[in-house]
Design a protein around this nucleic acid. Structure first.
Lengths: 223, 223
DNA sequence: CTTGTAAATGAATGGTCGTTCATTTACTTT
DNA sequence: AAAGTAAATGAACGACCATTCATTTACAAG
């Protein structure tokens, strides 16, 4: 591990070439998996895209499964890292911040997103657990926003976890139908969905201000 | 076609046995496709589930692709037919009616639903178009409800088509995580999601009455 | 220039795939 | 009992699969 890291620095173009090939394998696999599905893509097809013989792929990834695992795990990690990097401007409502971030990221990385929830069942159990853990970590971000906002009276959410999954499913569905150049622009989408989400979690009384309302009602108290 | 129908009536157990085998093929394929994905399931596995040799499958379906097409098309047709059959009680808000129907149907037929949006890309183009047409027909139901309700002032929807897709994505995501015997019951889910949807499309000026008010709406014209 | 090694090749491995088909089985009709 | 036929069998077809590996190529280090 540290040997490889050191060599990466002291070695020259040879190491660089290998890493570039690995990157192109990831790129080709990403597009193929997104278009046809993991099980329907052969190592031969990936190798042909990269411009290399099938056997050469095994210099960079031990198995086909490891390519999928690499794609999905790095996507989930980058998604969470991108959220952390996106900061949290005090001026903007945290929910608005999250919705805008999620929509933008998922429209930019449509292939990665698509794979990461379509190919879950093609992951070996150990790899599945790793990806699931990352997914829960991301869901916890939104759940935390909803819980804090509800405690502060800004939102009124009955069940933070269910609402989290509802919102994420809603937003993640966008890339399935949205296409650039259509009737609506990306900013249009952002505003439309933001409006839906904001209203869905708004306190019942229509006073649009962020008035702190007491939580009078607990008719459900599920759990 | 009509020959087969007539023979089905005048012929005896032989025909019945063939149709029952076909049904068991559908059943086995449904479960396998839902669990592992179309591309990862072999005809040999399906045949083993049915208790028959692989070659016998071809007495009932011309190709593996036809099994998938049959499952997806009949699911979409049955979904729409179930909606039509569910009637439209004048007492209930149409949106509430749709949300409850959709959640219940999708929790009852989780495998069919799962296949019908996971395996779209494994359909040959001609079959894909058929399924897509059915999907649009179903989306048009909700879009019509939202448009009529907005025209009547009961809802305030900026874009009926986007809102339709948002709601359907949200609701269709439920079977991905919901399990019987967990923290929440099916009626719990229904109420939670109904609340989210109702608020998301509610007019901004919050007359707090979420219940069914007078119906001064125009007749619905689903196209 | 020699040595070390990352990277790619070309060929092969055993296996599984969807599908076909001549033949047999089981049952209905006449 | 004979004829007809739906359904299932058993064996095979060619094609493609992921993966392995001895060998070769390309390039950097000493």
């Amino acid at each position: 591990m540290s040997d490889a890291a050191v060599q990466t620095q002291i070695r020259g173009p040879v190491r660089a070439k290998g890493q570039e090939t690995a990157a192109r394998v990831r790129e080709a696999a990403l597009k193929r998996f997104a278009a046809a599905g993991y099980a329907a893509v052969s190592m031969r097809e990936i190798a042909a895209d990269v411009g290399v013989r099938p056997g050469a792929l095994y210099n960079h990834f031990p198995t086909k499964q490891d390519i999928l695992k690499d794609l999905m795990l790095s996507h989930m990690a980058e998604l969470h890292a991108a959220w952390v990097d996106s900061g949290e401007p005090a001026a903007m409502d945290p929910l608005e911040h999250f919705v805008r971030f999620h929509i933008r990221y998922h429209l930019e990385r449509a292939d990665e997103v698509f794979i990461s929830y379509m190919e879950l069942r093609n992951l070996e159990p150990a790899n599945f657990d790793l990806v699931e853990a990352e997914r829960r970590r991301y869901e916890a971000v939104l759940a935390g926003i909803l819980e804090d906002g509800t405690a502060a009276g800004r939102y009124a959410v009955q069940d933070a976890m269910v609402t989290t999954r509802a919102i994420i499913a809603m937003l993640t569905g966008i890339p399935a139908w949205f296409r650039d150049g259509g009737r609506l622009s990306r900013p249009d989408i952002e505003e439309l969905y933001l409006d839906l989400v904001r209203k869905a979690v708004a306190p019942e009384t229509g006073s649009p201000g962020t008035g702190t309302r007491s939580r009078e009602q607990s008719p459900r108290e599920i759990g």
